[in-house]
Design a binder for these strands. Structure first.
Length: 251
DNA sequence: AATGTACTCAACCGCACACAA
DNA sequence: TTTGTGTGCGGTTGAGTACAT
């Protein structure tokens, strides 16, 4: 309080504490900060977390950034202890946010063998991909991502390479906010600015077109490398359902 | 009352990144 | 370019507590 939030490694020295700076920082962020909300989460807050998680995944710090007075640790604990269970009770898969009935579909004996069928399936989260694509041109740089995608393996988003953001700004319905303050960790690697009302479908948000744009964009990544050349004209004017259908076909 | 189980929450750990030297 | 340091994030752990048996 006396010297402001700054060099945490100096805090235990100044205060003569038997703690490391990292531990002091954590204690401040999760407990001592005066702007923290106390008490349990309201129903509204829980629904907001579910909505944000659907879009952001386990990016607790980014979720917390949308909820003043709540910490990432607090939200993470709530999710793991309570919200995951609530979603399952509602018949929703907490990882994909899709109905469980879609995931637990019966085995088709004419397709894959049972072992292959039961193997973990990659989860496609277009927003996750998109999050890492700020300042990236996957049309030219993310061939590796596309191959992983095409092989049905999990995505390794760390393998995205950076170059320009050409091509991104032309996508309809999407706004970009390239990060400029490198010191701001809450902004690191991220980019889609999110408002709570948008998560709940504010009137101005057209999620259908956003999703369609993102999925269309991913599929174009394949088209440009020739793998899907024969279908290249089919990607004009895709709907969300079309895109998800194509994605499933690719898997 | 004793024991087992489920749950919550603060804290720890390992890793990644930014930045300065 | 390399290395060391500081910092933040997400996954995980373990102590404490409430409740059931």
């Amino acid at each position: 309080m006396r010297f402001g939030v700054g060099c945490w490694s100096s805090v235990p020295k100044q205060a003569e504490l038997q703690r490391c700076g990292k531990s002091c920082r954590l204690r401040w962020i999760n407990y001592l900060r005066p702007d923290l909300k106390r008490g349990s989460f309201s129903q509204q807050e829980e629904e907001l977390i579910i909505g944000l998680h659907e879009i952001l995944g386990n990016r607790w710090s980014q979720i917390a950034a949308q909820m003043p007075g709540r910490t990432d640790n607090e939200i993470k604990n709530l999710w793991n202890s309570s919200l995951k269970k609530k979603l399952r009770q509602r018949g929703i898969d907490p990882v994909t946010h899709k109905p469980l009935i879609e995931i637990e579909r019966p085995i088709d004996p004419n397709s894959l063998n049972e072992e292959a069928y039961n193997a973990p399936k990659p989860v496609f989260n277009p927003f996750n991909l998109f999050d890492f694509q700020m300042g990236i041109d996957p049309m030219t740089d993310n061939l590796n991502q596309y191959h992983q995608f095409n092989q049905g393996t999990s995505f390794d988003q760390t393998q995205f390479t950076t170059s320009s953001n050409s091509g991104l700004s032309s996508l309809p319905g999407l706004e970009f906010n390239p990060v400029t303050e490198s010191s701001s960790e809450s902004n690191r690697g991220c980019s889609v600015e999110l408002k709570a009302e948008e998560v709940f479908g504010g009137e101005d948000v057209d999620w259908d077109s956003k999703l369609a744009s993102i999925l269309h964009f991913q599929l174009q990544g394949g088209k440009i490398h020739g793998e899907l050349n024969e279908q290249k004209h089919a990607y004009e004017d895709l709907t969300v359902d079309d895109c998800f259908g194509l994605y499933q076909d690719l898997l």
